[in-house]
Simulated scan of single mutants.
Amino acid sequence: MPRQLDDIDRRILKALVANGRLSNTELAREVGLSPSPCWQRVRRLEEEGVISGYTAVLDHEALGVGETVLIEVSLDRHDPEALEGFGKAMAEIPEVLEVYLMAGDCDYFVKVAASGTKGVEEFLRERLFPIPGLRHSKSSFSLRCLKKVTSCVPG
């Protein structure tokens, strides 16, 4: 069972989600603690796995891969080897941002950063279609992102 977060833990998490580069002093000031207890709480949240890491959020448009493509994938087999093989193949492709094993009409939902329609065609032809066991895929282009967060802090 997950540990219960108190109000101070939630404030720390919300502040770090908004700006993971805050110094401990800045974070402590923002959440109303002195630096030492704030540091101890952050370390505890890290040790407990509530905070699993820190990362930079990149602007894909600035990097030339501003198109987001959402791909539903179905495999021809569902044995552990086929599922593991597909998962490993996806993990090795840099432009694959997220992969979800699904229940429902498709087996996987894949989020890809691409450079326009040519980049999508190249991804499909050179990266996705050669994967053994692929039966079907259905691609949709995102027109605009209305909300994008990396984490949520439950109330």
Rank of each mutant, 00 (worst) to 15 (best):
G104E: 04
V149Q: 15
R10K: 15
K147G: 01
L5S: 10
R3G: 11
G85S: 07
D6H: 05
T55P: 03
E126K: 07
A89G: 02
E46S: 12
P37R: 07
E30V: 00
L16Q: 11
A62L: 13
I131D: 07
E81Q: 10
A91M: 10
L33N: 02
C106E: 11
V153P: 09
A62K: 06
P154A: 05
D9P: 01
E126A: 06
A82L: 03
L27F: 12
G133A: 02
R41T: 02
P37M: 07
C106G: 02
M1V: 13
A18G: 00
S140N: 08
G64Q: 05
R29V: 11
I12R: 00
V31K: 10
P94K: 10
E98W: 12
K147N: 09
V17F: 03
E47D: 13
L134T: 02
T25Q: 12
D79V: 03
R127W: 06
G64N: 01
L83Q: 14
A82H: 11
M1W: 12
M90K: 13
G116Y: 06
G85V: 01
Y54L: 04
K118E: 15
T68K: 14
H60G: 15
I131H: 05
E46R: 13
G155Q: 13
V120W: 06
K138P: 03
V149D: 15
H78G: 01
E81R: 10
R3F: 10
V153D: 07
Y54F: 14
M90N: 08
L97Y: 11
F123Y: 14
S52R: 12
L16W: 05
V99K: 12
E122W: 05
G32C: 04
R77D: 11
V73K: 04
A82I: 06
L16K: 14
V153C: 13
G119M: 03
E46M: 08
T150P: 04
G104N: 07
R77T: 13
G64D: 00
S142P: 00
N19Y: 03
Q4D: 12
A113T: 02
L63K: 07
R43V: 04
L75M: 05
N19G: 05
D76Q: 09
I8C: 09
L83W: 08
